[in-house]
């Protein structure tokens, strides 16, 4: 009888000790932010375009961390999906067409003589890549433009075009070798 009592007491004491240790550890080593979200966010292209259905890259990163699909980012395309798949330990899946298609890199261009200076595009730009003031002509800082498209919709005079980034010998890259085509006569 006494043995049982002792064993119970001993176990209870152990439980209290370990509980205290665990409790302390959970406070002491608390992780403020989910580091996974930051890692995912780093892989996303940061266009902040919202094509994934989330208001920016970070929210999508959070959604992925919470189990959302990794194929909703058209600006990132296949490369981003591959990187995300590596990070998340899932299979790379093709880009979800519902969110758009992978396209050549584009930047916004304001037809300046048509701009009425309404500042609507400036408010829409997620990366402050449009300069201008009320009733003054606006223009896009090409180097800062992520090509997110968000400024096109608000423009009341439709003076914003998305133009593909011009290819120069600086950004040109060697192409994949063309697969030789052979005509086979039957």
């Amino acid at each position: 009888m006494l043995t049982i009592l002792f064993s119970i007491l001993a176990l209870a004491a152990l439980a209290v000790v370990f509980g205290a240790i665990l409790g302390y550890a959970s406070v002491r080593f608390k992780v403020e932010d989910d580091p996974l979200v930051d890692q995912i966010n780093d892989l996303l292209p940061q266009t902040q375009c919202g094509q994934c259905g989330y208001p920016g890259c970070k929210p999508y990163a959070e959604a992925i961390a919470n189990g959302d699909q990794i194929n909703k980012c058209p600006p990132g395309g296949e490369a981003t999906i591959r990187h995300l798949a590596d990070l998340m330990g899932v299979d790379a899946v093709p880009l979800d067409d519902a969110h758009g298609e992978e396209d050549v890199k584009k930047v916004a261009y304001i037809r300046e003589d048509e701009c009425i200076g309404c500042t609507k595009c400036i408010q829409a730009c997620p990366v402050d890549a449009i300069v201008g003031a009320s009733k003054a002509m606006h223009t896009v800082i090409v180097d800062e433009c992520t090509g997110c498209d968000l400024c096109v919709e608000p423009c009341p005079v439709d003076c914003i075009d998305m133009v593909p980034v011009a290819q120069t010998s600086q950004n040109w890259k060697w192409q994949e070798l063309a697969i030789p085509v052979k005509t086979v006569n039957e």
Binding site: T47, Q48, P126
Partner: peptide
């Protein structure tokens, strides 16, 4: 491709910074 990726990474970091600052 690696060079392009590096450049894009720099650009996306810049965009991220600008977005966060905004």
């Amino acid at each position: 491709e690696i060079r392009e990726e590096r450049e894009e990474k720099i650009k996306s970091d810049k965009a991220k910074k600008r977005f966060e600052e905004r």
